[in-house]
Write a protein that binds this DNA or RNA. Sequence first.
DNA 1: CTGAAAGCGCTTACAG
DNA 2: CTGAAAGCGCTTACAG
Lengths: 344, 344
Amino acid sequence: MTRRPTIADIARAAGVSKGAVSYALNGRPGVSATTRERILAIATEMGFVPNRAARSLSVSSAQTVGIALRRPARTLGIEPFFMELISGMEATLSAGSFGLTIQIVTSQEEELEVYRRWWAERRVDGVLLCDIHVEDRRIEVVPSLGLPAVAVGGPIEGGRLAAVWHDDQEPCGEVLEYLYALGHRRVARVAGLPHLLHTTIRDAAFGAAARNVGLDSFTSIHADYTGEQGARITRRLLTSAARPTAIVYDNDVMAVAGLGVAHELGVAVPEELSIVAWDDSPLCRLTHPTLTSLTRDITAYGSRCAELLLARIGERGANPGEPAPSVQFLPAALSPRGSTGPAA
Amino acid sequence: MTRRPTIADIARAAGVSKGAVSYALNGRPGVSATTRERILAIATEMGFVPNRAARSLSVSSAQTVGIALRRPARTLGIEPFFMELISGMEATLSAGSFGLTIQIVTSQEEELEVYRRWWAERRVDGVLLCDIHVEDRRIEVVPSLGLPAVAVGGPIEGGRLAAVWHDDQEPCGEVLEYLYALGHRRVARVAGLPHLLHTTIRDAAFGAAARNVGLDSFTSIHADYTGEQGARITRRLLTSAARPTAIVYDNDVMAVAGLGVAHELGVAVPEELSIVAWDDSPLCRLTHPTLTSLTRDITAYGSRCAELLLARIGERGANPGEPAPSVQFLPAALSPRGSTGPAA
DNA sequence: CTGAAAGCGCTTACAG
DNA sequence: CTGAAAGCGCTTACAG
């Protein structure tokens, strides 16, 4: 195995300067068409691939985007959401020949530390922020580092942090109208973590939709997205005096757990209980009955987030005063399946 | 936001050469204890963080490990396995201040292309290989590139590719003995993809165990790990003439789908059918009844793989002739839960 | 259009 | 123990 060819080798072989090789390789003016051709031919023949570190050092850009996932290891795997999101991001990143570097963290403090280090080391050019909280230090800290960033979810007040988000008002209305039409009047919701921005947005949207539709009762109980809490809360709901006839869950995992509890208690789905999962995933088609869900294209969502981040990186420092862009994505749509039916 | 401090800035402030700063920062001989202290103090005061690209260019190491995942986007998310594995890898990598870069690919050709590019660009120092096939070009190609690599799973014949694997004979025996003790005589297995090394190893191990235990019948049907196929095959098994009284699944997703089919067909679990899932995951505790599974600590497994890879990277070129290490991990252990019981 | 040179921010022999 | 210098492999003004 011999040493990898460098632009110096190509320059020598072509009888030109290293600068000329660089211009030719990068498709910039500065070399004639004929020498460009010749240089390119020699480069491919030698199997030349530019050294990333050298390039990064020169242009001071890492050609890499980072994502820090703050989830306990045991729950990280089970939600299909993240892998789908990452897969979508990665597709557009690698199309732009950007890499994706990933780190698991356990606290917000650690997460911010990772960002500071990554940015100081110039290891990444930008980051994607997940699970925005209502009071989220990242909203202030990350922009103030000068680190380009895009929040997955929003909208975000303040305008310094770019975000990709989607309207929840419409899908919340769609779900409750659908359940109402099926005759449901007592609906419960097993919600996500109360300090997540995204949960509070749904809290408001569902509240408004419940009033519009005219349900007799609509209660949200906050949980942590795990199967354990999904099961426990469902058990409580199904054994309560005024048992709901339909339950909406803020993620697929809790919905599947809820279905399990219905089986356990001998409550027939959908005859005695209708179940709706927010965020469709293959999980929702694994069960019997299959779960009615709110579908969004998470892969495409991830792609959109990555696109915006690349754009932000590209225009870095261009318009420092302007508010950060806030991009709206398609709202979720209802996919009716076997777990919903007429109220008993 | 001013320019980040470099070793030149520190050298100037400390009144020493850049070399001295580098020695001090890296804890190498070449500076006295007192100057070292002084340099370190100044560095921390200035908030110095070394530029990765510059370091990489000098030492020609990227301090990064890569992993290419070859799964269709729609199935990637649902198996908790990968996220848990990645989480475990990432923990030991970041402890060694290595980064993890990830890319999704769709074919083996593309995967090899990614490795070639990563290595040529010196973007990674090594890679982790997943889903080893029976006839796998990577086993030959990757070592011949000179790219340090560790296979997740094995053992691998040939000895040029390091691997971390675990014995499947013992857990296969444990499962079938357990089912036999419960009175099961006709057992079926919904297996993984037949061209995966890991599937063929289980094929052999289960076959041997079935003979040892003395089952009346044991048949393996190969599938692709998706819920769809898990469901379809289960439906076929449960409607066949000599219906099995127990089914073992090669992953959690197919097992959950199989349970759904049992519900659909009105086959009571575990009264009329026992179900065992290989690879315990939170998924297995989401259902009712909960699934008896073969448990292994995937996070720890990922850590072990990363450790071996870091060791391989460290000893790069040290013993070119020697066969690659083959590290054995703990075998899976049976976790009995609600989905198994006495045969009808 | 082309070439020679400096620079990115580190590390590491090599002399004193 | 310490300093001055070269080098890693690129990019990019700056002269011709």
